[in-house]
Design a protein around this nucleic acid. Structure first.
Length: 492
RNA sequence: GGGCCGCUAGCUCAGUUGGCAGAGCACCGCCCUUUUAAGGCGGGUGUCGAAGGUUCAAAUCCUUCGCGGCUCACCA
C-alpha cells in the first residue's frame, strides 16, 4: 500500500475513535513502572499491578488473544492481551491499533510458558495515534540520509544510536562535574560577536536589525574568556557551541561543541595535566578502562601521554629538520620532493604546517602531545623563554586526530598588538582565516592579565572516541544537511 | 569544491544482454487464547531521485541536475 493509503487507513481509524468518543490524543497518563524496572525486578513485581506507557512496536494477534511489545525510554517489554482478561470491546480496540501508536497500559506482571516477563493487560488507553508507518521491525532503518534527517526514527528503531547519544550526554555532564571539582566556574560569553577571533576559521555572518550592524557567530570563545581572567576570575570554562563557516566532513560540522578553559597563574604544562586528567576521567567512567579499542585500533590512554616537539615530529615523519631551515624556498623544495605544491605565498612555517598535517597527524594514533609550535602559526600564544621563534603551545592527538589546542596565553599587550598586526597583514594578502585586530581585547590586556594557561577540547571528537565512530554526525543529533529540493523555499 | 559510489513499494533489498516492476517485512481481508522475525489462506500498494536524449522498446544506455555516503582539501 502506498504511504498515502497507509496514512489514510490510520486517519480512518482515528476518526472511528473520535466517533466512539475516544480521545486519540489525551492529556496525560500516570505511569507507575518502566519496562526495564519490571524486567529487572520480576521476583518482586510478579503478580503486581503496573501501569506502563510507551510505543507499540510489535503485535502478534492469535484470534482471541495476542502479544505485543511496548517500548519506553528504558527499553521494551512484552504485553499479553486476552479476551478473558480484557473483554470483547477492548480486544477489538486493541486489534485495531497500529504499530507506532503510543499507549498507556494497566495490567499484572507474569512470566509466559517460554519464560518471558510480560504484562497481562486488563485495560489500556491510546495516548497518541500514529499516522505514519515505522521502518521495518527486522532490518530497521539503515538509510543514513533518513537517519540524519529524521533522527527521531533513528532513535526509535536503532538502540545503539540511542545509547550513543546517552553516552554523549553523560560525557558532557562528567566534564562539567570534573571541572566543578577542580574549582572552575562555568560561564557564558557571546555567541554573536562584533569581531571574531580565537581561531583560524571563517565565520558565519548575521545581522542585527535594530543596531543595523553585522555580527559574527563566534568561531571560539577565547578572547572573551581571557577578558574574564583580566576581570579576576581565576578558573573559568565554557562548554558550548562554536560555529565555523567551513566544509562539512566526517570530522566537521559547522556547529560543534567546544570545551574551552582558562586558569590564571598556570602554563601549558598545567594544561597538559588537566587535558590528560579530563580525557582519562571521561574514558574511564564511560569505557571502564583506559585501554580502549577505537575503529579497530587499540588505544592506551594511560598517563603520561607521549610528548613530542613539533619540529621533532616533523623530522621523524618527513626526515627533514625544519628547525635548521631559514629560507622558505628550501622548505618549498622539500615539500615538492614529498609531492606537495604549497601556495606560492605560503611562508616557511605555513609550508611546514602543510607537511605536518599531511605526514605527521595521521600517524599520531596513541595519545600524544605535540609541543612548541612556530610563533607565526600561533598569534595568541606566549613565546618560549629560550627560543622566541617558538611558542608554548601544544595540541593533543588521539587516533590520528587533533582533539584540542592549548597555550601558555600571551598576556603581553604590546607583543599581542604586534601579532595582530602581522595577522592583519596576512588578511590584506587574502588570508581570510587570519585573525582580525581586536582593539577592545588589547585594551583588556593593557589593564593586565595574569600569566594564564588555556585549553580547548573538541567535545564531539572526544565523544567519537567514546562511542567508537568514524563520523562526527553520529555524535550530533541533528547534523547539518542540505535541504532536499522539495523542502527548499517553503517559508522556513 | 574535486574524485569514487549510491538513490527501485512505508522499511530492507533483488532486478541478467535494453523486452509486462519484483521479494521479505509492514499494510488490507479471513482463520487462530502463551507467541516472540508467531503461523495459515488471499491481496502488490510504484513519479524506479528529477529533467532531457538515444531506441520499436529505458529502472537498465547517454547528458545535465538534485540529495546522500566515502574520500581529498580545512580544522577542533
Amino acid at each position: 500500500m502506498a504511504q498515502q493509503d497507509l496514512k489514510e487507513s490510520r486517519i480512518k481509524k482515528l476518526n472511528d475513535l473520535i466517533g466512539k468518543k475516544i480521545n486519540p490524543y489525551p492529556l496525560k497518563y500516570d505511569v507507575t513502572h518502566k519496562a526495564a524496572e519490571i524486567r529487572d525486578n520480576f521476583e518482586k513485581l510478579e503478580k503486581a499491578k503496573v501501569k506502563i506507557a510507551g510505543r507499540l512496536m510489535l503485535m502478534r494477534m492469535h484470534g482471541k488473544s495476542g502479544f505485543g511489545h511496548v517500548k519506553d525510554d528504558s527499553g521494551k517489554i512484552q504485553i499479553y492481551v486476552a479476551l478473558n482478561f480484557i473483554g470483547e470491546e477492548k480486544l477489538a480496540f486493541f486489534k485495531s491499533l497500529d504499530i507506532g501508536d503510543i499507549l498507556g497500559l494497566e495490567g499484572e506482571v507474569f512470566k509466559t510458558h517460554t519464560g518471558e516477563i510480560t504484562v497481562n493487560v486488563f485495560d489500556f488507553t491510546i495516548l497518541s495515534k500514529s499516522l505514519l508507518p515505522l521502518p521495518e521491525k527486522w532490518h530497521g532503518l539503515s538509510d543514513v540520509e533518513v537517519r540524519y534527517r529524521q533522527r527521531y526514527l533513528d532513535l526509535i528503531i536503532n538502540e545503539d544510536v540511542r545509547e550513543s547519544f546517552k553516552t554523549r550526554s553523560r560525557a558532557i555532564q562528567l566534564a562539567r562535574s570534573f571541572l566543578k571539582e577542580k574549582g572552575f566556574l562555568e560561564v557564558e560569553t557571546p555567541m554573536m560577536q562584533p569581531i571574531y577571533g580565537g581561531a583560524y576559521a571563517r565565520p558565519f555572518i548575521t545581522h542585527h536589525n535594530a543596531l543595523d550592524m553585522d555580527l559574527y557567530l563566534r568561531i571560539a570563545p577565547e578572547l572573551y574568556l581571557k577578558r574574564l581572567i583580566v576581570g579576576g576570575f581565576e578558573k573559568v570554562y565554557e562548554l558550548n557551541r562554536n560555529f565555523r563557516n567551513e566544509g562539512i566532513s566526517t570530522r566537521h560540522n559547522p556547529e560543534f561543541t567546544m570545551l574551552e578553559l582558562y586558569q590564571a597563574y598556570a602554563d601549558y604544562n598545567d594544561m597538559m595535566n588537566i587535558c590528560e586528567d579530563l580525557v582519562c576521567y571521561l574514558v574511564r567512567e564511560i569505557k571502564g578502562s583506559l585501554e580502549i579499542e577505537y575503529q579497530g585500533q587499540k588505544l592506551s590512554l594511560n598517563k603520561p601521554w607521549k610528548r613530542i616537539k613539533y619540529f621533532d615530529a616533523l623530522q621523524q615523519f618527513t626526515g627533514v629538520d625544519f628547525s635548521k631551515i631559514k629560507d622558505p624556498e628550501e622548505a618549498r623544495s622539500e615539500a615538492k620532493k614529498m609531492g606537495f605544491e604549497p601556495d606560492p605565498k605560503a611562508s616557511l612555517w605555513e609550508i611546514a604546517n602543510i607537511l605536518f598535517e599531511e605526514k605527521v597527524e595521521t600517524n599520531l594514533i596513541q595519545p600524544t602531545f605535540i609541543m612548541d609550535y612556530p610563533k607565526e602559526l600561533s598569534p595568541l600564544a606566549k613565546q618560549k623563554p629560550d627560543d622566541p621563534e617558538l611558542v608554548e603551545r601544544f595540541e593533543p592527538y588521539i587516533g590520528g586526530r587533533e582533539i584540542g589546542n592549548a597555550f601558555s596565553e600571551l598576556n603581553d599587550p604590546l607583543e599581542q598588538r604586534k601579532r595582530f598586526e602581522e595577522q592583519v597583514e596576512k588578511r590584506k594578502q587574502g588570508n581570510w582565516e587570519a585573525h582580525p585586530m581586536d582593539m577592545d581585547f588589547l585594551t583588556a590586556l593593557e589593564y593586565g592579565m595574569p600569566p594564564t594557561g588555556g585549553l580547548g577540547i573538541g567535545m564531539d571528537r572526544i565523544i567519537m572516541l567514546l562511542v567508537d565512530t568514524n563520523s562526527i554526525r553520529d555524535t550530533i543529533l541533528f547534523p547539518l544537511l542540505k535541504p532536499k529540493a522539495e523542502e527548499k523555499g517553503d517559508g522556513a
